[in-house]
Design a binder for these strands. Structure first.
Length: 787
RNA sequence: GCGCCAGUGGCGGAAUGGUAGACGCGCUGGUCUUAGGAACCAGUGGGCAACCGUGGGGGUUCGAGUCCCUCCUGGCGCACCA
């Protein structure tokens, strides 16, 4: 008996299950049921990602409470899930907004803090003005908030961070061990971590006791450096310029929003070139990122596109240090180094090595590795989240609470008016007497990013009622999750955070688990045609009718234009409600359709024909078993064995669409060959194979035919039956198919060729030419080559 | 711009380097009648044929949808990352 932990990404309790959830959970359910039938020890839990902004926003809008709203939604969605006939371990259920979950998260926070993996600092952070909270770097997409789409502002705030960068190297390297993850997700994570190997070089500022640290991946081009550029937020800037001067530059930069036009402001300082006896100018430039490397670069215009553009605009010298034609500038490829006395004649990689060696000897530079990945900012200025177990004294110092002082319970009686953080305004909760120092103290009013909640829920599922976060032995036994199924939209966020958490907890609690998810499967979206009136108003699919080749809105008789199939969304109204589908077509047909028309990792287009044909398949199977006759043929058993084998192979490979094809193929055969199984024992095998896909139908037929619902185990395959004795052997001449012959497996080549040469079609192809070669791929194909 | 993935009938999609188009949808004939959101039978890549066909062009191979090179198109991701 093997353990199989099968998990689908838990939903946010927004109020209703949508079709995307249905597809996600049906895929997982099929796997879970299959493994149970195989006799595996299956863990298949479900819970609620229950903290988060929608609850708070809804509460403000509808004058309710986030907790009540959330609990109502959970109840409703749970009812909906139950209708989907999912085989879930409901006794493992958890909701992240409940004390019995988040108090243990507070414990984890304390331990992360003690391990140096949680810290507080003033930082320039991403502020979402609409949700009125800070966002992590991962949650800003194209300069906009991931949820609201509002343009993110930069603010300096004192914030809690998790030190994910501590694991940058491991998070990167371990991707190679995740052989059962989609390459695409791994590539995305790799790019996000963004490892660069290069050097850190010190540039001395002339006449000042200051140095500029610069990270570069191209130390080989140091002789071509003609300027230095730093970010407006570089710490040097505030030492040189006055606040109003800085503001002016910032304003100037902010006018350039969308295009990448480069702008620079020359500073009244110069740097000494680290090798050459020359001074180079220093600019503040808009294209220098302040959160990458040291926030400073040296510009080598001849061999970098951005530096080239900048140099042209500000008329800076362009010095070639890699051999190339002038017309190729900026030349960024490898080549022979020139104009660089120390490394002339070398190629890029050798020059880099030699230059760094030189810098290290001179102690003005060193080898350096840089990551794009930043530490994870976890403070959120919102009420509906896990309280951070920290208190502040009036002198500004803080203390992270002891575990014995937990839980810090989120107060229910808050005033949510949308103005500011409700916890900040809740004086009674906020102000306490510190039990240790007896001093007045104030609770941390920020709450944790909800991605913290989902970073360890798969661990809590193992023991959801335990009086501590988890049981080490259980974690080591049941993790990693064997199959994790969900949408690709979490490729970076949730999946990277969870990987970090697993590694951090491993180090803190001495666990044996390195990675949380052994296999990741990302299911495709469900799409549907879109419908619009001529005025541009979106119309729901159920509100239209087809008439005389035209599409008409039922109520108003307006003509409707059909648009392309797009991801189901409320805004485009191209949604199908699971409840209505279940009512009209039944659970088994719905389950069939979720995996029928395309492979589970690709998009599935919702069509009426599709769901209808799934329904027809259910009826067809029911009808078949209703025929009270048993009649089999010689190869019936072999066909069934092949069917079982195919279904099993395709479930394990997540090729669930092929399972549906296998089912059709089987019933096509049975009906065409007039084979009746009814209460023949073979029916049991077939019904067990159907059970993961259509459990309701399968159980009912099983009960009708065999008077018992007890599910036997997955049938063992009789391999000897799988070896077909008769095969159709293709015969090629010069690699082109000419004919096929029926023969037995294991034929003797010499003998079979004799009869092949007698076939007219073959004779006509060979004519009087000499056969110079015969390629016989035993039991597969024969290819005859003539002169 | 960089990276990844993908291009196969009218459509969704099958094919460990070995019979391209399994299976489904749709469509075309026909059968039946409890006139159905049915069911059943036959057909369905192109071409009268020999033959031709997996985005285009090269290559490797006895044999290529599959491997290699190159170009085109589409999707996704990242994007001034020094």
């Amino acid at each position: 008996m093997q353990k199989k932990y099968i998990l689908e990404m838990f939903p946010y309790p927004s109020g209703n299950i949508h079709m995307g959830h249905v597809r996600n959970y049906v895929i997982g359910d099929i796997c879970a049921r299959y493994h149970k039938l195989k006799g595996d020890e299956v863990i298949h839990p479900m819970g609620w990602d229950a903290f988060g902004l929608p609850a708070e926003n809804a509460a403000i809008q509808f004058n309710t409470h986030p907790q009540d709203w959330t609990f109502d939604n959970i109840q409703n969605m749970k009812d909906q899930l139950k209708k989907l006939n999912l085989d879930l371990d409901w006794e493992r259920e958890l909701a992240t907004c409940k004390e019995d979950y988040y108090q243990y998260q507070q414990e984890l926070f304390i331990d992360l803090y003690k391990a140096g993996l949680a810290y507080k600092k003033d930082a320039l952070v991403n502020w979402d003005p609409e949700d009125k909270t800070v966002l992590a770097n991962e949650q800003v997409i194209d300069g906009k908030g991931w949820r609201t789409g509002a343009i993110v502002e930069q603010k300096v705030l004192s914030q809690w961070f998790f030190k994910i960068t501590h694991y940058a190297e491991e998070l990167l390297n371990d991707l190679d061990n995740l052989t059962l993850w989609p390459e695409k997700v791994k590539t995305m994570q790799k790019n996000w971590i963004g490892k660069s190997i290069g050097a850190e070089i010190k540039f001395q500022i002339i006449d000042k006791d200051e140095q500029l640290n610069i990270f570069t991946t191209r130390p080989d081009t140091i002789y071509g450096a003609t300027f230095i550029a730093i970010s407006i937020n570089h710490k040097l800037v505030s030492k040189i310029l006055k606040a109003n001067e800085i503001d002016l530059i910032k304003k100037s930069f902010s006018k350039i929003v969308d295009n990448k036009e480069k702008q620079g402001f020359l500073l009244d300082i110069k740097c000494q070139h680290p090798i050459l006896d020359k001074e180079i100018p220093v600019y503040i430039a808009n294209f220098v990122l302040d959160n990458y490397g040291e926030g400073a670069i040296f510009g080598c215009p001849a061999h970098d596109e951005r530096d080239y553009e900048f140099a042209i605009k500000y008329n800076l010298p362009i010095i070639k240090v890699i051999q190339c034609d002038d017309t190729d500038l900026p030349y960024t490829k490898d080549g022979e180094v020139i104009n660089s006395p120390l490394v002339n004649g070398l190629r890029k990689s050798e020059a880099i090595k030699k230059i760094i060696d030189y810098f290290e000897k001179k102690e003005i530079g060193k080898r350096s590795i840089n990551y794009k990945l930043r530490d994870w900012g976890v403070s959120r200025q919102r009420y509906w989240g896990c309280p951070i177990p920290v208190i502040y004294y009036e002198d500004g110092s803080f203390r992270v609470l002891e575990k014995s002082e937990l839980p810090v319970i989120l107060p229910y009686d808050v005033n949510l008016n949308g103005k500011g953080n409700a916890l900040l305004n809740h004086d009674k909760w906020r102000k306490i007497i510190c039990p240790k120092t007896k001093k007045i103290a104030y609770r941390e009013t920020d709450t944790l990013d909800t991605f913290v909640d989902s970073s360890w829920y798969y661990i809590r599922f193992l023991d959801n009622k335990l009086g501590k976060p988890f049981d080490t032995k259980k974690v080591n036994t049941y993790l990693p999750v064997d199959k994790y199924i969900g949408g690709i939209e979490h490729a970076i966020l949730h999946l990277l955070y969870s990987r970090f958490f697993m590694k951090a907890l491993r180090d803190i609690y001495k666990l044996d688990i390195n990675e949380p998810f052994r296999q990741l499967f990302t299911q495709g979206m469900i799409t549907h045609k879109t419908y619009k009136t001529q005025k541009g108003e979106w119309v729901m699919p159920k509100d239209i009718i087809f008439k005389d080749g035209k599409i008409i809105r039922q109520k108003t008789k307006e003509f409707i234009e059909e648009g392309p199939s797009e991801k189901m969304s409320k805004s485009k109204k191209n949604v199908i409600e699971p409840d209505e589908i279940l009512e009209n077509y039944g659970i088994d047909a719905t389950r069939f359709f979720m995996i029928s028309d395309s492979p589970p990792d690709r998009e599935l287009e919702w069509t009426d024909e599709g769901i209808q044909s799934s329904k027809n398949l259910v009826r067809r199977i029911e009808r078949y078993f209703n025929v009270k006759k048993t009649e089999t043929k010689k190869d019936t058993e072999r066909v069934i064995e092949k069917f079982i084998n195919n279904i099993e192979k395709n479930i394990l490979g997540f090729s669930l669409n092929k399972c549906i094809a296998d089912i059709y193929t089987l019933f096509n055969y049975l009906e065409k060959e007039k084979i009746y199984l009814h209460d023949n024992i073979i029916s049991k095998k077939v019904l067990i194979c159907l059970y993961p896909f259509a459990p309701k139908m399968s159980s009912k037929i099983m009960k009708d035919l065999f008077k018992s619902e007890s599910k036997d185990n997955w049938p063992n395959i009789n391999n000897s039956l799988l070896l077909e004795t008769n095969i159709n052997l293709p015969i090629q001449v010069h690699g082109k198919l000419v004919t096929t012959i029926e023969t037995k497996k294991g034929y003797i080549e010499k003998d079979i060729l004799k009869s092949i040469y007698k076939i007219d079609k073959i004779k006509n192809k060979i004519l009087d030419r000499k056969v110079i070669k015969v390629i016989n791929v035993q039991d597969k194909i024969i290819n005859i080559i003539t002169s």
